[in-house]
Amino acid sequence: MHFPKELKYTKTHEWVRFTDENTAYIGITDYAQDQLGDLVFVNLPAPGDALTAGESFADVESVKAVSDVNAPVTGTVEEVNEELADAPEKMNESPYDAWFVLASGITGTDELMDADAYEAMIASEA
């Protein structure tokens, strides 16, 4: 399992890749996909939707169960990765390439962790 250093993470296992101060890609972590198992469906928001840090903005379904994906930050959905809807297995194969949305106008970043802190949190959960 790996956690790229350049990303930020949440307690609920989402990652954030900032392209500049206000814009970022959002997805779920390697740990999240491993825990969820084979993912077969993703329900994504639409461009223009508002994101509120800590609130559900999408859901993913594995063979067994449905799980909410929380917004790691507050902002607006700029772009949606439509490819993911057709190939949800990408979330398992390559979780850090499989972004859900590109968000802009970002605020509410206080709770984000760096890779080391996130890895430590997972280690303590296991």
Partner: peptide, 9 residues
Amino acid sequence: VQYPTGVIK
């Protein structure tokens, strides 16, 4: 419930 191979495989 599953092995590391995963439910689909």
